[in-house]
């Protein structure tokens, strides 16, 4: 599925909830079901700076697609990561670089996060895109 299609799906899912408590519940469930990052990658090299809770991200190339795994010590943060991974993982690096991130505004994620978490979200997306740039260079 294309990044745009997945984003549309997520926007649809979020519009079904009546209030933000339900959305939080959904994100917490997503966070709990997030496949764990391998322990060897939970090191300081893989920590994203700018997040108040700890976030580890690892990327590897499988054929021509980039696969992300990640983890956090906070569950809601894990839920956010799960959404981002659903959008950006298993995609071609160039598509990740080109992807717009409007869905975050459309589902109202940023305004419903604390300022520190919203900063963390921006850092996370930046980090995923940086990985994509690095691997695209490698592919070229």
């Amino acid at each position: 599925m294309t990044i745009d299609k997945i984003q549309e799906e997520i926007i649809d899912e979020f519009s079904m909830f009546d209030d933000w408590m339900q959305r939080y519940e959904y994100m917490i469930d997503l966070g709990k079901s997030l496949p764990l990052i391998e322990q060897e990658f939970k090191t300081d090299d893989h920590i994203i700076k700018g997040c108040q809770s700890k976030v580890w991200v690892h990327a590897k190339l499988q054929e021509d697609k980039l696969v992300f795994t990640a983890d956090s010590d906070a569950i809601i943060t894990k839920g956010i990561i799960a959404i981002l991974i659903r959008v950006f993982s298993n995609q071609k690096p160039q598509d990740i670089i080109d992807a717009n991130t409007n869905f975050i505004d459309e589902i109202g994620l940023k305004e419903h996060l604390s300022p520190t978490r919203a900063n963390g979200l921006v850092s996370m997306i930046k980090q995923l895109k940086l990985y994509a740039v690095a691997y695209q260079t490698q592919l070229n």
Partner: peptide, 21 residues
């Protein structure tokens, strides 16, 4: 082992202001 940020975020949605961190 719950993260204080998670608890604080949910409390905020309930109108309760606490400090976390």
């Amino acid at each position: 082992n719950l993260h204080p940020y998670d608890i604080g975020s949910i409390l905020d949605k309930l109108g309760i202001a606490v400090r976390t961190g």
